[in-house]
Amino acid sequence: MSFGQNLQFLRKMHDGMTQEKLAEKMGVSRQTISKWEIDSAFPEMETAIALCKLFSCSLDELLRENMNSGSDAYTNICVEELPPMQYVRYAVISGAPEDDAIKHVNDWAISCGIKQPEIIGWDFPFTSQEQINVYHMHGYAAACILPSDFDTTCADMEIITQAKQQYAVITVKEPFSAPFSLIPNAYKTLMRYMEVNGLQHKQTKEVLPCFEKVYEEDSVSFMDVYIAVEN
Rank of each mutant, 00 (worst) to 15 (best):
M1I: 09
Q8Y: 08
K12T: 06
M13I: 11
M13T: 04
G16C: 01
M17V: 08
M17H: 06
T18F: 12
S34C: 11
I38F: 04
A48E: 00
C52R: 00
S56A: 15
E61K: 10
L62D: 00
E65A: 05
D72S: 14
Y74G: 01
T75Y: 01
L82F: 10
M85K: 06
V88D: 04
R89P: 01
R89Y: 10
Y90R: 02
S94D: 11
A96I: 14
A101N: 08
N106S: 14
D107Q: 12
W108N: 05
S111N: 01
G113W: 12
W122Y: 15
D123P: 14
F126R: 03
S128L: 09
E130A: 11
Y135K: 13
Y135V: 07
H138V: 02
Y140S: 02
A143D: 06
I145R: 08
F150M: 08
F150G: 10
T153R: 12
A155D: 01
Q165K: 06
V169R: 05
T171Y: 00
F176E: 08
S177E: 02
F180S: 05
S181E: 15
I183W: 08
I183V: 12
P184A: 02
N185Q: 12
A186R: 02
A186I: 04
L190Y: 09
N197Y: 06
L199Y: 04
H201V: 12
K202T: 04
Q203D: 15
T204W: 01
E206T: 09
E206M: 06
V207C: 10
F211M: 09
F211W: 04
E212V: 04
V214I: 12
E216A: 13
E217F: 15
D224K: 05
V225I: 13
I227S: 03
E230T: 15
E230M: 14
N231M: 11
